[in-house]
């Protein structure tokens, strides 16, 4: 690795560089249509980024171009997942990894809040009943130091 650092040239693609392999620009147009749909008809869109024939470096340029916004979330279920809003509000990235850290899905959601972040109604029901059960337990007061 040290030897690597001594290579005089370092490739840093500027974010504004033209999207030379042509697949990124149409994608950005597609995203802008999706944003309009979201704004006017409240219709969310999901794009599977694994199905986009990116050229080398395209994905990174796209990510750099869209940047990172205010919100990011971390999910631990069957491996790690990251969810973040891009610098353009309403455009979200969801990256799922498996237990070995390998990426198993990479999606873009044009929405107000990605579905995977919301709590499932069944979970709310279960949550309520287990909390009630806990409250009925006489030793609770003692446990929380009341």
């Amino acid at each position: 690795m040290n030897a690597l650092k001594s290579i005089p040239v370092l490739v840093e693609a500027p974010a504004t560089r033209d999207f030379c392999y042509q697949n990124t620009l149409p994608l950005l147009h597609e995203i802008s249509h999706a944003l309009r749909r979201l704004q006017q008809e409240q219709l969310p869109t999901t794009i599977d980024l694994n199905a986009i024939p990116f050229g080398p470096g395209d994905e990174q340029r796209l990510l750099e171009f869209l940047g990172r916004g205010e919100v990011s979330a971390h999910l631990e279920a069957l491996g790690n997942s990251s969810v973040w809003e891009s610098g353009y509000p309403g455009i979200w990235f969801i990256e799922h990894r498996n237990e070995s850290g390998e990426r198993v899905a990479f999606q873009m959601e044009i929405t107000t809040l990605p579905a995977i972040l919301a709590t499932h109604p069944d979970d709310i029901a279960e949550s309520l009943s287990s909390l009630q059960k806990a409250l009925e337990n006489p030793s609770l007061g003692h446990r929380i130091g009341d």
């Binding site: 690795m1 690597l4 040239v9 490739v11 050229g55």
Partner: peptide
Amino acid sequence: DLNSDSAINARRLSQVQDVIS
């Protein structure tokens, strides 16, 4: 070509180093 995306460049070399490690 260290200045090309589509060739063995610094990013590729560091991936190779990672594999060797």
